[in-house]
Design a protein around this nucleic acid. Structure first.
Lengths: 252, 252
DNA sequence: TGGTAGCATTGATCTGGATCAAAGCTATTT
DNA sequence: AAATAGCTTTGATCCAGATCAATGCTACCA
């Protein structure tokens, strides 16, 4: 079902240095620093389902996700629940690397991932010595924190039906009105992002037709925008994207 | 029921400058920076139940909690659920201040709070211009992120009974063996920290006697350590404290 | 072209924890 | 000492969503 893959194509990178150069939120970081980081890092490509690290492992690398997407999962025995979903470009759990603490989550590749893997100690030293990098990482970490809070609020304050409704409604808002929208992921993955089982997700989809949202295969039709928006009130605080603009260094 | 109040007493501070000087994780920040921040800030004392800020408000101040404790709540209509519990010394939602985004949570005082309120813009500028401050805030933000992940894992991976059992067991580990331990908070507040209703918490306490933990009023007796530890396996990744040691600036 | 393996749907049933309701406790106030 | 008000406990009931189970549906592979 390749139609479900992410279609945003950026030309593939072939070196760490190139990957760092293309990362928007590293734009303000001096070339010298990026050069040094690039030297101490490797560009890695990982297929879907690879596990990048396990819970309780101590980070050996700072991992910058350049292309693809990663699931961060809380695992206990056989159970697994998704705690964070990371899309490129972003750092994987910088908090663990910075604070020199073991990972709290398992990282598994969803869409084939390209990663810059930087020696953890080199990364920490670079953060300490380069102000712009420190600010960029701070902005990145802050944005991740806010995404996490949004995720928690979404789970705790909304019912399963509301989560699904808001998710679909948001999809349709991004697209051209009147046109059906394609689901960006397999249903089982959407279900896990929304914190419910596939079965519940499936049943919920069926009930949404009452509220003006009909889902047919992987196509979403907004049949009654007014009804849908009345039932599922999007909250910009929860449903909006979380922008990340590093603080600027002014002056000199 | 004043026996439940926090008993860790630090002598009260009377100026912002003094408060900043006493904050351990600001130790590495140059005196000049702290002086400047102190000039642009006010020391505020807030009684229990005060609301420091509301969801969707834009931060006007960076707030450093110096004494007391704060609940950060997700609210929708009448419902409220606790998302984070902040103890002094810590920053309140630095992510919102740094990224210049609206707060996602409501902040309500639990134990009478002393706060240093720093003009938001002044704080951001100080973070940009002072490397040590930037590193300190980064470490603080990283620790908060990890606490948040721990909280999420605790809620999603453990049953109500396990959460209560682990909470109590952890209390007893910190104390002298054989002695009963006093609950550090009112039961309704512990319940909300553990993500359940007071009723469920109360009922759960009753059942814990089967596993070697007897609770009598606000006293916890560990009557069968082996049984308790067998049933409630503490996970250092979840139940340990989250240490916060800012990265050191080496050299000069 | 059949086989196999992973998704998706649908139905039946279960259950952890919430909710609603009613006393009991404590503590402080007058 | 009575009264008010906030916490706690206990009991009865409810329900959203999980779990278990069976069947379809694709899609890929030999």
């Amino acid at each position: 079902m390749d139609v479900l893959q992410n279609s945003a194509k950026t030309p593939p990178v072939s070196t760490s240095r190139e990957a760092l150069a293309r990362t928007p939120w590293l734009a303000a970081v001096p070339v010298a620093t990026l050069d040094r980081l690039a030297e101490l890092s490797m560009l890695h490509r990982m297929p879907p389902n690879s596990v990048l690290f396990e819970q309780a492992e101590s980070p050996a690398f700072a991992q910058l996700l350049v292309q693809g997407s990663i699931e961060l999962l809380a695992a206990r025995g056989a159970e697994e629940t998704l705690v964070e979903f990371v899309r490129a470009p972003d750092l994987l759990l910088p908090a663990a690397v910075l604070n020199q603490q073991p990972y709290l989550l398992r990282a598994r590749v969803l869409d084939e991932a390209t990663l810059v893997m930087i020696q953890a100690e080199a990364f920490r030293q670079a953060v300490v010595s380069d102000r712009a990098l420190c600010l960029a990482v701070l902005a990145c970490q802050a944005a991740q924190f806010r995404r996490q809070i949004k995720h928690a609020k979404n789970l705790q304050l909304r019912s399963a039906e509301e989560r699904v409704g808001c998710y679909l409604l948001r999809l349709t808002e991004d697209a051209t009105p009147g046109q059906p929208v394609r689901l960006p992921l397999e249903k089982r993955l959407i279900a896990s992002q929304l914190g419910m089982t596939r079965e519940t997700f499936s049943r919920t989809l069926a009930t949404l037709a009452r509220h003006g949202l009909r889902v047919e295969g992987d196509l979403v039709h907004l049949e009654n925008a007014a009804a849908a928006r009345a039932r599922f009130q999007l909250d910009p605080l929860l449903d909006g994207p979380e922008p990340m603009l590093p603080l600027q260094i002014q002056g000199i």
